[in-house]
């Protein structure tokens, strides 16, 4: 890279599937860039939108949510996660933050190729996009917090809250 930009990628990897999947890559002595940070999570359904946006605001250029997909051990968690990421990307798009920076995927315990492919694709996308706009991400994070607080007041979740707020 001429400008020396190395994208920083955060991988949120589920304990049951994707984290052992990432281990399998190392066990096979296959390599990927060292600016890929893998954090172990029980289920990424845990994270509110503002968590991801905060990560961007801190300089994370791209996030891969490496879930268990339909093998998720928690009832209904994957469906909720998918819905939440849908909502997040809508808000990112509306706010002008490139949605290619967010990727929801499923990686199994032996999905070595899939893991490497996801990293390579994200890397490629991010090199095209350049570093994340941290100030914009911070602005979106604050909006997302407001949306969440609003949802608390009116007992709404997700996009329903947004729609309702616009209507008001």
């Amino acid at each position: 890279m001429a400008d020396g930009f190395t994208p920083k990628i955060l991988v949120l990897a589920t304990e049951k599937c994707a984290y052992p999947g990432a281990d399998a890559v190392g066990k096979a002595h296959l390599e990927y860039p060292s600016e890929v940070f893998i954090l172990r999570v029980l289920s990424p359904v845990l994270f509110p939108e503002d968590y991801y946006l905060r990560a961007y605001s801190k300089g994370i250029d791209g996030i891969i949510i490496a879930s268990c997909g339909s093998d998720c051990p928690y009832h209904g968690a994957y469906e909720r996660l998918a819905k939440r990421i849908d909502d997040l990307t809508i808000h990112m798009k509306d706010g002008g933050l490139e949605i290619e920076r967010m990727r929801l995927t499923a990686i199994c315990t032996v999905c070595i190729k899939a893991f490497l492919k996801e990293i390579a694709e994200m890397e490629e996308n991010l090199i095209k996009l350049g570093p994340v706009d941290r100030a914009l991400a911070e602005k979106l994070r604050q909006e997302s917090r407001q949306r969440l607080e609003f949802s608390g007041r009116y007992g709404l979740t997700g996009n329903a809250a947004t729609a309702e707020r616009v209507a008001l």
Binding site: L39, V41, S43, F47, Y51, R54, Y74, L148, G152
Partner: peptide, 27 residues
């Protein structure tokens, strides 16, 4: 699973051992 954690507007709900402020501190 933590499905409840994400929607709390006050961060009153946390997953023990995997708190959101811990994940933020990691980033």
């Amino acid at each position: 699973c933590g499905a409840c954690v994400a929607v709390c507007p006050h961060r009153a709900m946390e997953l023990n051992g995997w708190r959101l402020d811990q994940f933020e501190a990691m980033v």
